[in-house]
């Protein structure tokens, strides 16, 4: 007799547990306000990334086309993957001294793992992360970027 009771109890407990699950899912079905999907390319305009978001490494320039990079190469040493390559040149300053400056600050986005060591170790805070995250390109060579803008100069007062 007890086994028969057990048999029916199992059935009802089973059905009850199934109904509990269905209550949750049908509850979501009837509450469209809880939809979490973002319509990504359509909401590009009002999509705001967090301020610390690691998009890609850039070298901020001010309005006079000046950057802070002295070409010391610390970022290059600290990069674990050889993402950064600093090509420096020697320039003659106004007062006739010879000085080292960057020619090209090459950043290979395809190799970057976003460990942030370059940004953190830069002694003159010349590097930063941008919010840009749409990196897909059709040609791999486009992933090799030059961080300093053409014709840019070292900011005054930074050694």
């Amino acid at each position: 007799m007890s086994s028969i009771i057990q048999y029916f109890r199992e059935i009802f407990q089973g059905i009850w547990s199934l109904l509990k699950g269905m209550r949750v899912t049908s509850g979501y079905f009837f509450s469209p306000g809880k939809i979490v999907t973002q319509k990504y390319p359509n909401n590009r305009k009002d999509l705001v990334m967090f301020e610390r978001f690691k998009g890609e490494v850039i070298m901020p320039h001010n309005e006079n086309n000046e950057h802070k990079c002295t070409g010391c190469g610390i970022c290059e040493i600290n990069c674990p993957n050889g993402t950064i390559e600093v090509i420096s040149k020697t320039i003659v300053t106004e007062d006739g001294k010879k000085k080292r400056a960057i020619d090209k600050h090459i950043y290979r986005l395809g190799m970057c793992t976003f460990c942030a060591l370059c940004v953190k170790t830069c002694p003159s805070n010349a590097l930063a992360f941008s919010q840009e995250f749409e990196h897909a390109v059709f040609n791999r060579s486009l992933l090799i970027k030059i961080s300093n803008k053409p014709g840019s100069q070292l900011m005054k007062g930074i050694e």
Binding site: S26, Y28, F29, P32, K34, I35, T37, K39
Partner: peptide, 13 residues
């Protein structure tokens, strides 16, 4: 659409 609404999604749109 049904499964999308169950799963807090929009489904085909």
């Amino acid at each position: 659409k049904v499964c999308a609404f169950l799963q807090n999604r929009l489904g085909p749109n």
